[in-house]
Design a protein around this nucleic acid. Sequence first.
DNA 1: TTGAATCTTGACAAAACAAGTCGGGTATAG
DNA 2: CTATACCCGACTTGTTTTGTCAAGATTCAA
Lengths: 146, 146
Amino acid sequence: MKLSTKTRYGMRAMIDLALLHEFDEPTTIREIARRNRIPESFLEQLLGKLRKEGLVQSIRGPQGGYILAKEPEEIRVSDIINSLEGPIRLAECIEVPLCGEARNCPSRVLWTRIRDSIDEITQTTTLKDLISEYGDSAERKGICND
Amino acid sequence: MKLSTKTRYGMRAMIDLALLHEFDEPTTIREIARRNRIPESFLEQLLGKLRKEGLVQSIRGPQGGYILAKEPEEIRVSDIINSLEGPIRLAECIEVPLCGEARNCPSRVLWTRIRDSIDEITQTTTLKDLISEYGDSAERKGICND
DNA sequence: TTGAATCTTGACAAAACAAGTCGGGTATAG
DNA sequence: CTATACCCGACTTGTTTTGTCAAGATTCAA
């Protein structure tokens, strides 16, 4: 069970935008891609999805780029994940029960419990939370792929 | 983010064995496969891994088959998942930090929190827990793929 | 008005992975 | 000895993920 790079890249890009949010001017795809070591044309796709979900706003033309469409505290991690890869579906039968009367089939209970605990975290954590825990951006040096 | 069928099938097979555990006689791959709608030769692979991790025991020859190698309360869900697809690695950098000084890189904190919460569940839930919550096996009728 | 910067879109390609199959082994009860 | 059952690794197939590309649309500024 692992995260797709879509999600990892997308989260990095969103955090990047959140850190720049106070300056209130757009950043280009190229810059985001360079800073976060994401292939430019791949990032393009991800930002497209994030825009369609209303999480980022794009500005075309020279001096254009992307900015967050809302305040960091209004963007939940679950919003980002949902935009990029749809809702988490650990197993079919949690979402679309085929099970008939076996309403407590043992594994289903388990998968549900796991999914709920993931949801709990992603739905209560916002971009704001992530960047404030992070501390001031002067510390931002190392190389991380996630 | 979804579970592989390896994990879903494997869990079903283990629950199956746990339900039969009281009878104390082996069940064949073929029977487990039929009862749980798992391709026989695929299940073979899974049971091989589970055996190598000491979760099930195999008995060769006629009247042979598989039984749990321990009591259901001694087998944790995390043991099963680990045998079948290795430890959960949401993101590289949680396990093998490359991040240098960026020790609190924002997404890493998040992924770690999610992983820990999954671990908490899988490490504290045993096969016993799953089958007792399940109630008596007379109710076991519906068709579920997970 | 023109051109450069920038986002937009969809089609495509390559690589990785998951799921499933198969054939030929080995052990063992009867 | 033979039928039953596990054992193991190689192989195939299909899907998903990851990434690339080219042509188009919008906007700023000279």
